[in-house]
Design a protein around this nucleic acid. Structure first.
Length: 498
RNA sequence: GGUCCUGUGGCCGAGUGGCUAGGCAGAGGUCUGCAAAACCUCGUACAGCGGUUCGAAUCCGCUCGGGACCUCCA
């Protein structure tokens, strides 16, 4: 376990040393997707970032329980229910899409996208719809504490009353009085005692499709409730890390803190982490703005803003080239450069795996390179420890890659580094690339054996100076997205970076 | 309007008081049948204007630009 991991805590607005409440255990909750649409680039960033945190904590030796929910109690409503005549036109129940059918479909596609992005499965992935009793119990607890009230079958959280004892707005830096000044009148506000109050339980209108019985009538849980209920159920009332996108800070996480405090008598999380948004042409990407790019569009290239398809690992690498709290702007140019960089790294991974240390008494020790390698290895850890600065990690990996390539092509002797440093070089490179950043090879269909035998033919043709044959083999490799590398030390192949 | 973030070389993107980030693109070189790959070298960037300081991209102020949240949102 690293005593040096520092994470930026939105609650305190500074980087803090990470000290789990109950080491070696770590409880981490991340707000999952609302499954009423396909996952887009923004989801990719959030879940890749927290996947890297999950991986890093594990690699440090912590026993992490990672909970990431599925929100499937959205506000799906039957659009035709309100229009009498159309309603009659419906013939059979089976012709209609069940709300759970919609949720299932998008849950499946979300999982498929995450798998392609090599995002590890969370330890528990609870669904809001499967935790209605827990949510009702939490509402009851808050009611008992006098910090909520019932109105027309709905239950609202009493923000001002809560604020008398505990400051509401600690996470987002808001003050209730200031917010009251700028509130607008939205429909459904009549029942609330105060515009800032938010729903814990909502009475279901007739056209609302998802509904459950409750002590207050038939309805559905409020928008923020599920996370409080499920986080507490699986991680305890107080746990280590709560994460999500920056856009969730207010109101979602702010309400969660208030609810949990009211219902569980403690602040839910010690560290609040928030990733920044992905922007397109400098503007936030979002469903409501209509400028979002779904992941399946990215992977297929089927979108007006995309000049080509980009592989899942290209996207992952693109995301990790930036620090998670910085905004990240999408562009074809940026993705294309990420694609090349990613492939370069993968070529290095293959080489690092096949390099073997060869002791050689005649090779003089190269102290300068040895020190450089050690500093670069430390740089990887330091980068991660400094609030998951994956951009710094990637920079260090590329510098390590130069050493690996130099050894591979004969410019640097492994023996000159000494066995210990050499092993550290290859191990660090492989571990950080694969295990921590979670980048893996996207293999082409070619069986490795075919490549090996073709390379043997290439070598023979070359020795015989049959250049027609040589060029032909090279041409074939190119059609497979591969290139042949001629080096003093031998012949090898690599992924074409272009 | 309120709260907050941000502006780095052709592009992306770290750094945040003095010491080469890195990737992509570009230039030159080594290697090579020609290439490719790889390696080496190169750009001397920090929105503008003031200020603090021996010294600022890095701190402070102002100006200009961009963005987020205040409503479901990763």
């Amino acid at each position: 376990m690293s005593p040096n991991l520092r994470l930026y805590n939105t609650l305190t607005k500074q980087k803090e040393l990470f000290e789990p409440l109950n080491p070696p255990f770590v409880g981490m909750y991340v707000c999952g997707p609302t499954v009423y649409g396909d996952a887009h680039l923004g989801h990719a960033r959030a879940y890749i970032v927290f996947d890297v945190l999950f991986r890093y904590l594990q690699s440090l030796g912590y026993r992490v329980r990672y909970v990431r929910n599925i929100t499937d109690v959205g506000h799906l409503s039957d659009e035709v229910a309100g229009e009498g005549e159309d309603r009659i036109a419906r013939k059979a129940k089976l012709q209609q899409l069940e709300p759970m059918e919609v949720a299932q479909r998008y849950t499946d596609s979300f999982h498929a996208d995450m798998d392609r992005l090599n995002v590890r499965h969370p330890s528990i992935e609870p669904r809001a719809s499967g935790h209605i009793p827990e949510q009702i119990a939490l509402v009851e607890a808050i009611l008992r504490g006098g910090l909520a009230y019932e109105a027309n079958g709905s239950v609202y959280f009493d923000v001002l009353k809560y604020n008398e004892h505990r400051p509401y707005g600690v996470l987002s830096g808001r003050v209730p009085e200031d917010m009251l000044a700028g509130t607008r009148d939205l429909d459904g506000q009549r029942e609330k005692r105060n515009p800032l109050d938010f729903a814990l339980w909502k009475n279901a209108a007739p056209e609302h499709l998802m509904r459950w019985p409750s002590p207050w009538g038939v309805g559905f849980p409020g928008w923020h409730l599920e996370c409080s209920a499920m986080g507490a159920k699986y991680l305890g009332n107080r746990f280590d890390i709560h994460g999500g996108g920056m856009d969730l800070i207010f109101p979602h996480h702010e309400c969660e803190i208030a609810q949990s405090q009211a219902g569980h008598r403690t602040e839910p999380a010690k560290y609040w982490l928030h990733n920044n948004m992905i922007t397109i042409n400098g503007q936030k990407m979002g469903r409501s703005l209509g400028n979002f790019i779904n992941l399946n569009a990215v992977f297929s290239g089927n979108h007006a803003l995309l000049q080509q398809a980009y592989t899942p690992m290209t996207v992952r690498f693109f995301v990790l080239q930036a620090q998670y709290r910085s905004p990240l702007d999408f562009s074809n140019e940026a993705l294309q450069s990420a694609q090349k960089g990613y492939r370069r790294l993968m070529n290095g991974l293959r080489i690092a795996r096949q390099l073997a240390y060869a002791p050689d008494e005649t090779v003089a020790a190269d102290e300068r390179n040895r020190q450089e390698v050690n500093a670069l290895c430390e740089g990887c850890t330091k980068g991660m420890d400094d609030d998951l600065n994956t951009a710094v990690v990637v920079a260090n990996l590329f510098n390590l890659l130069k050493k690996i390539n130099s050894i591979h092509t004969g410019g640097l002797q492994a023996a000159a580094l000494g066995e210990e440093t050499f092993n550290r070089l290859t191990t660090t490179f492989i571990t950080f690339t694969e295990e921590i950043l979670g980048l893996r090879e996207e293999k082409s269909a070619n069986p490795d054996e075919l490549i090996v035998s073709l390379l043997e033919l290439y070598r023979e043709a070359k020795a015989a100076k049959e250049y027609d044959k040589v060029d032909k083999i090279r041409g074939y490799f190119k059609t497979q997205g591969l290139v042949i590398k001629d080096m003093k030390t031998g012949i090898d192949w690599a992924y074409e970076e272009g």
